[in-house]
Design a protein around this nucleic acid. Structure first.
Lengths: 333, 333
DNA sequence: TTGTATGCGTTATCAT
DNA sequence: ATGATAACGCATACAA
């Protein structure tokens, strides 16, 4: 409740009886070397005063901050929290702090947040979660991001390489197709697809690729969330399951919602229908029956995004694999 | 790849043909009013140049940044990601950005991170996850935190009120005791406790309070994670379950790990033993059998932490309730 | 090697 | 109401 003011470098210099410059050189990793005597005195003074460099001031003086900005749809969603974990880890390795913002899946909000984050002058802006197919919002976002890269910033997207920036691409098509093939091989014939939002690119890619391998008898859209899956599943049930022997939800949280709906309606899984998801979120193996899905190395993807931005080179696109994981929710038919 | 430099306020002023001061006053929420004509010209110039205020510079000039620092043990853990969601939401409401760091449950790392975060001169530092009972680390941490508050910063802990700072307290004792009573009422007689780390305060409080209501026949320690629960459960099984009719894990992720171990070993849940956790993490209801637990409003707690720090007043401690949620994993005996 | 002085992008105080 | 100008805390080019 008192109100001292944080110790400044100037305070430290005075306490140590040296100049501002020497203090600065002693405390940060300057290339210049300083007399051991002085250095020790400065360090002692800094410790005594509880000095911590003012990062904002450093950023202003250096013309560049040491932060990574991360934008996610919903940090409570295990998909994004796994990515965030990777981003934070890799950023920490590079001595960078992470400032995080959440869009709530709102395109306008996303643009607004990018503007705000740009103000931090971060080294990198990572956008996780894929874009919606909205022409004008897309253009505004791109313009904003281009303004950022034009001034030396790095932008990395995690999803599809549909925007002109570096991206860590998830092999949605390959994974979805492989899943369809695997399930087809297990004897599944008539899948219903819980397809997510109609205008979400990631969702569409997964639907299309899956359908190419195993033609769906029903496709129902809904939110990309647990509740979305729950509701979509219910409306599917309401419409009559007919011959459906498999439910493919385009992501795990939706699949988990579907599982919940099926349970509530007394429909046996996997006896009556099999269920599959996508992402291999950490809880996929803990639900019952354990969820068949397509594993995406989320944490690696997050780490890769900042590595890609910081790395000397490596090409603008880094693809993370998507591999099928068969579990109890889809036994052989 | 080009290398322009971001537009500065000076650029905007020049473009609009006004002084630096008027440009500043037009662009930020200054109390001073400025001629509409000028204001419009400045806004137009800013838009044309794609100007974004340099937040670091603002922070230096104002002497205070507009960020909230958040420290968690592991952002991929649903417990912490739920808290993070609340923090981010409430911070956004106050126009504050959130910079996040993860300790990996390492006390030394935590101290290191607090120092680094202090450098941001955030308005608030939120520490989620409870302290370990290590005397000297504790003192160092407290000293660091006190240096921060002494210079006008707010510190909020989420856990127990064991450190001399504002805290959002989880009613661990009340919840654990209520759980013990409820399970006792259901006919459970011989619980084993998966107790988490020996020196983790939160874990200890839960164990103690539960034990007071329902004396355990076994207590085994382990990490506060899914793996910790898995391993602890296995060693419990190895030792022989004897008369154990209930497993109480001090948090949900451990309980979920235990569920997995029980399944792997072919022990029927809830037929042979009931299982209960603590926190009511979002996936607790999706596992099988659905997990009996103690609900802690995590997101609310996160939001409350920044509200507490920013709020005019409200006392140094804000308690969030912990209420028993009975589910399928603990049927009546 | 050390110190002096200037600049970084903003805000805020002071005249005007 | 507007415009110079001095801070803010730090880094660094330059001089000593």
């Amino acid at each position: 409740m008192s109100d001292e003011t944080p110790a400044t470098l100037y305070d430290v210099a005075r306490e140590a009886g040296v100049s501002l410059a020497t203090a600065s050189r002693s405390l940060n990793g300057s290339s210049r070397t300083v007399n051991g005597q002085y250095r020790d005195r400065v360090l002692a003074a800094a410790a005594k005063l509880g000095y911590t460099p003012n990062l904002s001031a450093q950023a202003v003086a250096r013309g560049a901050s040491s932060t990574v900005a991360l934008l996610v749809s919903d940090i409570a969603d295990p998909y994004f929290s796994a990515i965030a974990a990777g981003v934070v880890k890799q950023a920490a390795e590079a001595g960078l702090a992470v400032t995080m913002a959440v869009t709530d899946r709102d395109t306008d909000r996303e643009i607004e947040l990018v503007r705000m984050l740009r103000g931090q002058r971060p080294r990198v802006i990572v956008l996780a979660g894929s874009r919606y197919t909205d022409e004008t919002a897309r253009d505004t976002l791109v313009a904003e991001l281009e303004a950022f890269t034009r001034t030396g910033g790095h932008v990395v997207l995690i999803s599809q390489h549909e925007l002109p920036f570096d991206t860590v691409e998830v092999d949605n098509a390959g994974g979805a197709r492989a899943l369809a093939d695997a399930l087809s091989g297990l004897g599944y014939l008539a899948p219903a697809i819980l397809a997510g939002p109609e205008n979400l690119v990631t969702a569409r890619d997964r639907v299309t690729a899956f359908a190419a391998g195993l033609a769906p008898v029903a496709v129902v859209h809904g939110a990309f969330t647990r509740t979305g899956g729950y509701d979509a599943m219910n409306s599917l049930i309401d419409g009559g399951l007919h011959g459906v022997d498999l439910v493919f939800a385009v992501n795990d949280v939706m699949a988990i919602g579907a599982l919940s709906a099926l349970r509530d309606r007394g429909i046996d899984v996997p006896g009556r229908v099999g269920v599959a998801g996508f992402d291999d979120v950490s809880t996929a193996r803990d639900v019952w029956p354990a969820l068949t899905t397509v594993r995406v190395p989320l944490e690696e993807a997050g780490a890769a995004s900042v590595a890609l931005a910081l790395g000397a080179r490596g090409g603008p696109v880094s693809v993370v694999p998507a591999t099928v994981v068969l579990r109890g929710s889809t036994p052989r038919r």
